[in-house]
Amino acid sequence: MGCLENMNYEVLAKNCSFKEAREIIKSNSKERYQVPPGFKLLDKPLIGIPPIIVGITNEKLVYGYTKPCHGTFVVVVDDHEGVEHVRRDGKPVW
């Protein structure tokens, strides 16, 4: 586990609303899972308006990352532990 800054990641979108982020995640993911607010990835709780969608594509996580001054980013993160965690504890959605 670690900080996002220490991982390989790319930003798909930035400074968007959470609803916009949800649609971007859905359209950029091969698998989609619903998780509760506070669900932890890289030791940080996910911020978001339920239902929170986390996607997986090419064994990478796709999710929204909210910062107080910069809105919500959609990031693609190479986090194998996170992928396993989401597949194990998230609810698959289509």
Binding site: S17, F18, P45, I47, I49, T66, K67, P68, G71, T72
Partner: peptide, 15 residues
């Protein structure tokens, strides 16, 4: 005062 604040607060309401 912004969308991020709204998102954080909605999260609080849920948890």
């Amino acid at each position: 005062h912004n969308n991020a604040g709204l998102t954080y607060t909605a999260t609080i309401a849920a948890v």
